[in-house]
């Protein structure tokens, strides 16, 4: 890996960490458990389109570990790991099909992030009753995915202009 690329990955990890911290400090509380803007997903989408899939995956894992160990506990880490993993896999598949732009990919990421968290909640709470929240979370995930997708689109264009690597 070229050193320039490596430095950029480090930068993105730091950014994802900061965005997660901001979201931790100012949780949106609209009375729906698990509802999140998913600011850090912005960085993952940018990485996916500038650095490539492998580095975006690395970033995703490191972010979950860093944030979990710094601010969270085991339970919180489990939720965010499941959300991040499922969301990454879904975005990876959708991106590979080539049918959607980064906005669609980010929407899929947002939706599946919430789906992953619901799945963990089902196991933690030992009830499927929490599925009741799924449609709310899908809508929130879609809306935040649109915003994050549009913003990351603007960032991706600029990053590609500055950094040129193969």
């Amino acid at each position: 890996m070229k050193s320039k690329k490596l430095a950029f990955l480090g930068l993105l990890i730091a950014l994802a960490f900061v965005l997660s911290y901001i979201e931790y400090m100012m949780p949106i509380n609209i009375g729906i458990p698990g509802a999140k803007v998913g600011l850090a997903n912005l960085v993952v989408v940018v990485a996916l389109y500038t650095l490539g899939e492998r580095d975006a995956f690395t970033l995703s894992i490191i972010r979950v570990l860093l944030v979990g160990l710094t601010f969270g506990n085991m339970a919180m880490m489990m939720y965010s790991a499941a959300g991040a993993a499922l969301s990454f896999i879904a975005m990876f598949i959708v991106k590979r099909t080539g049918k959607l732009s980064q906005t669609g990919v980010s929407v899929i990421g947002g939706v599946f992030h919430n789906v992953g968290q619901i799945i963990v909640a089902i196991f933690v709470l030992e009830t499927s009753a929490i599925l009741y929240y799924l449609p709310f979370l899908v809508i929130i995930g879609t809306l935040s995915g649109v915003v994050i997708g549009l913003i990351s689109g603007m960032i991706i264009v600029r990053v590609k202009k500055i950094f040129r690597w193969s």
Partner: peptide
């Protein structure tokens, strides 16, 4: 944003 993105977003919301 592609046309497919719009279709995806609208169908999920609907």
């Amino acid at each position: 944003m592609k046309k497919n993105d719009m279709i995806l977003i609208i169908s999920i919301l609907l």
